[in-house]
């Protein structure tokens, strides 16, 4: 995966809570056997009506957010299905960072494996960013090394698991790293129960 550290762009305010992965990528797009090409389908049924025409008031269709790399939403983002097609679609569309008060566990893991930075800020902080971002396009800088989000004349600090941070900063392939523990795995297998 690609390393990630500093990301600059306007943020996209998606003012919804409990956004589930069925909304991020609908099931009719899960039949492909590739990892790429899912961006065109992200939030499909919120972006397009039944005749495949853009729904103008949906935030991703508004020109002021074009090119945005930072998505901001409410609590429990990415709940539901484990489909990794959801982060693939988000990344392929152009987002590298998702900011929300909380994330569903599997989605959070899936983002991390694809070099997408998930940032948990407090509900009040997220509401501030959403309100400012909805009022006018809000230039935002995310700095993973410093663990800061700078926007709206303010600096928001965030926590991140040090292991996740190292992996993201370096863009390491986790499987290659795990191969270094082959001896431990083999030793474990020698003693593990058959049942």
């Amino acid at each position: 995966m690609e390393p990630i550290n500093i990301v600059n762009s306007v943020l996209t305010p998606l003012n919804r809570k409990n956004v589930d992965t069925d909304q991020i990528i609908s099931k009719e797009f899960l039949k492909r056997i590739e990892r790429t090409g899912f961006g065109q389908y992200v939030f499909y049924h919120w972006r397009f009506d039944q005749n495949d025409q853009p729904i103008q008031d949906f935030v991703l269709n508004q020109p002021q957010y074009e090119g945005s790399k930072i998505l901001v939403a409410h609590e429990n983002f990415g709940c539901g299905s484990s489909r990794e097609h959801a982060p693939w679609a988000i990344l392929d569309y152009g987002f590298n960072v998702v900011i929300a008060p909380s994330f569903a566990d599997i989605f959070h893991n899936n983002c991390f494996k694809n070099g997408i930075l998930t940032i948990a800020l407090s509900v009040a902080e997220v509401e501030e960013l959403l309100a400012a971002g909805e009022a006018s396009p809000l230039e935002t800088e995310v700095n993973l090394e410093a663990q800061t989000v700078t926007a709206n004349g303010k600096v928001y600090n965030f926590e991140i698991d040090p292991y996740y941070k190292q992996m993201l900063l370096n863009g390491w392939d986790e499987i290659s790293l795990t191969f270094q523990y082959d001896e431990q795995i083999t030793k474990y297998e020698a003693t593990r129960k058959a049942y």
Binding site: S82, E84, N109, N110, K113, Y163, E174, I175, Y181
Partner: peptide
């Protein structure tokens, strides 16, 4: 028993393990 994404599926296929923070 828990659900995983496709990258983790690949990790388990390759190593029969997963890096997991204890919930």
């Amino acid at each position: 028993a828990f659900g995983i994404g496709t990258s983790e599926v690949e990790h388990v296929l390759s190593t029969q393990t997963l890096w997991q923070n204890k919930p």
